[in-house]
């Protein structure tokens, strides 16, 4: 019974990975262009490890959204992975709290060279509203080297995808520092 209902719903839903043009045509064009660029740069996959270094969890909502069916990132070879050792790119959110500073440094060291770091959100880019205080070190680049900063509170999934692309199309980081 459940299988029948699931198949019925899947058929009824169809593919939503390309949003209907009348909904937001500008968005659609950008998504398609991004997907083509990722394929051109890579022809392969990019594996991302996300680290929340002190975020309010707003940025995490948009990372989840990016993994939803509208964006179809796995179909384009972009995948979030469970271990930094499997990752090409570290995506860091939040002002870096002092309680997360060591964990973030260790995660960065665990990503094999060559690697990229993308700082996501106003907090990751500048420290945001929290700034630097007794409990936080502020922006991500005060703790580990950052290749690309994606501002926004939180940045939309498309902005995030653009930031990831900006990082990977700029060439790989050769060495730490």
């Amino acid at each position: 019974m459940a299988t029948f209902l699931i198949l019925q719903q899947i058929l009824k839903t169809g593919s939503v990975s390309e949003p209907a043009p009348e909904a937001d045509p500008a968005l659609r064009t950008r998504e398609q262009a991004l997907h083509a660029d990722i394929l051109k740069v890579f022809g392969q996959a990019v594996a991302i490890r996300h680290v929340d270094a002190g975020s309010c969890n707003g940025c995490e909502l948009e990372i989840h959204a990016l993994n939803g069916p509208h964006y179809n990132i796995e179909g384009m070879g972009v995948k979030f992975v469970a271990s930094p050792r499997h990752a090409d790119l570290l995506l860091v959110t939040g002002p870096v709290t002092r309680n997360m500073e060591i964990a973030l440094k260790r995660a960065f060291e665990a990503v094999p060279e060559p690697k990229w770091v993308v700082a996501m959100g106003d907090c990751g880019c500048t420290g945001g509203m929290f700034g630097e205080n007794y409990a936080t070190c502020g922006k991500v680049s005060s703790v580990i080297p950052v290749d690309v900063e994606v501002p926004g509170c939180p940045p939309t999934p498309v902005a995030l995808l653009q930031g990831i692309l900006a990082a990977v199309s700029g060439g790989r980081r050769d060495a730490e520092g």
């Binding site: 002190g54 709290t97 309680n99 997360m100 509203m129 929290f130 007794y134 409990a135 936080t136």
Partner: peptide, 24 residues
């Protein structure tokens, strides 16, 4: 682990900015 000094950050803010921080 995500303790970021939010309560201390509120001190001295104006009321409108406080609403933005509360939301975060």
């Amino acid at each position: 682990y995500t303790h970021k000094g939010t309560e201390k950050r509120f001190e001295g803010l104006d009321l409108a900015t406080g609403a933005k921080l509360a939301g975060r």
